[in-house]
């Protein structure tokens, strides 16, 4: 007994001596508090300096979003906190730029108008970077995906492709790329038109589909996939096919006149991509397949 404890004490002394030796060896000094934050990026002073002065002065950037698009951006259970990939990305961008990037809930359909009016600095709401929209804003591309057709589980109307929607009703969020896609599809239907149901939020579109008032709802692949795999919703929804229609880029919409902010966001995003933070955030939300390898503006 006493022999054992004496041996333990001796071992303890040896350990202390050994660790003392180690700290003496040249090593990387680790900043306190940074150890457990994976992929944290340091603030880039140069980029911060390039921010428009007004933003630098007030210390935050306000991006409008429609939080009904899990897992991209949606409300947490408390009904007030916005969570998802995009809030995380916004926060990371803020880290790099040295300002706070806030997500503000707004109506998707009028989001670009609000930016043009100067209410917000940009839109970060899974907005597809389209030619039409480029007339009103520049896009810092951060995501790449296509559109899926979401139907009720069991697919009662046998929808397999966009063409099958002819003669049926389909829902989409007002002002989205998917609403436009439905309009384009409707044009090809001839005598059996598609009845397009446009709703203020994506959640409202899903309510319509859940209640069987529409046959399908169009939305981007990531949230559609999320719905069909999440245990609370997978019992009601499925993808009509694995196909992603009209793949394209998502972009943070910034006013065309705010070039400095646009470029700062682009460079900051590139910094995140380079540092691995971007990849890490994608992985957290199981969105790695939709990542971009380079930060671009308006697709170039």
């Amino acid at each position: 007994m006493s022999l054992l404890s004496r041996a333990a004490a001796a071992a303890g002394i040896a350990l202390v001596l050994a660790s003392g030796g180690c700290t003496g060896a040249p090593g990387v000094a680790v900043q306190a508090g940074a150890v457990d934050e994976v992929g944290t990026v340091a603030m880039d002073e140069a980029l911060h300096a390039k921010l428009p002065e007004t933003i630098r002065m007030r210390g935050f950037v306000r991006l409008v979003t429609d939080a009904s698009y899990a897992p991209m951006e949606y409300f947490a259970a408390d009904g007030r906190t916005i969570i998802g990939f995009e809030p995380d990305l916004a926060a990371a961008l803020g880290e790099v730029l040295g300002v706070r990037v806030e997500m503000v809930v707004g109506v998707f359909n009028t989001a670009l108008d609000e930016v043009s009016a100067g209410t917000y600095d940009g839109v970060l709401s899974s907005m597809t970077d389209t030619e039409d929209r480029r007339d009103r804003a520049d896009f810092v591309n951060y995501f790449s995906t296509g559109t899926s057709i979401l139907v009720q589980r069991g697919n009662p109307k046998g929808v397999r492709s966009l063409d099958d929607l002819c003669g049926h009703s389909a829902a989409a969020e007002t002002g989205t790329f998917q609403e436009e896609m439905l309009r384009q599809t409707a044009k090809k239907c001839g005598s059996r038109p598609v009845r397009i149901v446009s709703l203020p939020t994506n959640a409202d579109a899903l309510v319509e589909l859940r209640l069987g008032r529409v046959v399908a709802a169009l939305q981007d692949y990531p949230p559609a996939s999320y719905l069909t795999t999440d245990e609370r919703t997978s019992a009601f929804f499925e993808l009509a096919s694995d196909e992603q229609y009209e793949p394209g880029l998502f972009g943070i919409a910034v006013d065309k006149h705010n070039v400095a902010l646009r470029d700062c966001l682009r460079d900051a995003l590139q910094r995140l991509i380079d540092s691995g933070t971007y990849g890490d955030l994608l992985a957290r939300w199981e969105l790695s397949a939709s990542g971009v390898s380079k930060a671009t503006v308006n697709g170039a």
Binding site: D66, A67, S68, Y74, F75, A76, A77, D78, G79, R80, T81, V105, T201, N202, A203, D204, L206, V207
Partner: peptide, 30 residues
């Protein structure tokens, strides 16, 4: 803050008072 609470109030008759976040729409926003 997003959490529902129920409390029994004992007056002339017993009443239960529920305070809960008001989720107005399908988005789940309070």
């Amino acid at each position: 803050a997003g959490a529902a609470r129920a409390k029994v109030i004992i007056g002339r008759t017993q009443t239960i008072r529920v305070m809960q976040p008001l989720f107005a729409g399908a988005t789940g926003q309070s």
